[in-house]
């Protein structure tokens, strides 16, 4: 039989026991609970960077514009396409004497023999004699040219545009085949001097006289653009259908300038 005192003592002892057990258990598992929490200052000082929020970054204060790409080279202002001459021609070209070299005469002969000049009846089919300048003056290599005499031809704006179109139309397929060597090559414009014979073939090798649009990043491609020009006129030649009477007039197509660019 347990007495009331014993029960009370047992209860107190049990609680005290439990308290002791708890104290010892906690003490064993984590002594740090008895210590003050770790001072945050120590963590920061030993580890330089704790997270994304940190000391002011050492960032360049250069304005953004100053970091423009070196590749953004200024593009040369594109030369405006040559205007067909808007001015009315005020003075007609003097009739040009025809002291042509033999080569021209020889080449003109097949043209003349090919041209079906309607009822013109120009009977100059001599096979080696001097060309009949008077009869040829104003004569074109176009069929159905029935005029026997013309006033001296002049290169009007419209005529220039037509000739340019005719040339472009014929060389475009060859131009389109030219392969771009690399990025930026399409900015290069080759300025070319062409000299043609009356039959539209090249009278002299294609002459590259200059370039536009060249910068540090595309300079390495200039030679290939030049190669392309030469390839174009080697492949798409001769140029046909150009008006004979505008061959060797002022601004005629005997010698002219061509600006070429790879397709951008």
């Amino acid at each position: 039989m347990i007495s009331r005192g014993e029960v009370a003592g047992l209860a107190v002892a049990g609680i005290g026991h439990a308290a002791l057990f708890a104290l010892l258990a906690i003490g064993f598992l984590s002594e740090s609970n008895n210590r003050p929490p770790p001072p945050p200052a120590m963590e920061v000082s030993l580890v330089d960077k704790v997270g994304l929020e940190q000391m002011a970054p050492v960032v360049s204060t250069e304005p953004e514009a100053a970091k423009k790409s070196e590749l953004d080279a200024p593009i040369e202002p594109e030369p405006a396409p040559p205007e067909p001459d808007p001015k009315p021609v005020t003075k007609p070209d003097p009739p040009k004497p025809q002291p042509k070299p033999d080569a021209n005469a020889a080449e003109r002969k097949p043209e003349r023999s090919n041209s079906r000049a309607g009822g013109s009846g120009s009977g100059n089919r001599s096979s080696g004699g001097l060309p009949d300048y008077a009869a040829e003056f104003g004569r074109g290599n176009r069929p159905n040219d029935s005029r026997s005499t013309n006033p001296p031809a002049t290169m009007t704006g419209e005529a220039a545009a037509n000739i340019a179109s005719a040339i472009i139309r014929q060389v475009q397929p060859c131009a389109n085949r030219q392969v771009s060597p690399g990025p930026g090559a399409e900015r290069i414009q080759a300025v070319v001097r062409l000299q043609l014979n009356r039959d539209g073939s090249l009278a002299a090798p294609v002459q590259i006289v200059g370039h536009n649009g060249v910068d540090d990043s595309n300079e390495r491609y200039v030679r290939r653009v030049d190669d392309a020009v030469k390839a174009i006129f080697a492949s798409c030649s001769p140029l046909r259908g150009l008006p004979a009477e505008l061959y060797d007039v002022t601004r005629g197509w005997k010698t002219f300038r061509l600006n070429y660019r790879l397709k951008g």
């Binding site: 003592g9 047992l10 107190v12 002892a13 049990g14 026991h17 057990f21 258990a25 064993f28």
Partner: peptide, 17 residues
Amino acid sequence: LIALAGCTKTPPPDVPG
């Protein structure tokens, strides 16, 4: 009281030290 705890009839639980 803690000393008294040793006098109870139940043995103390095994406390890992």
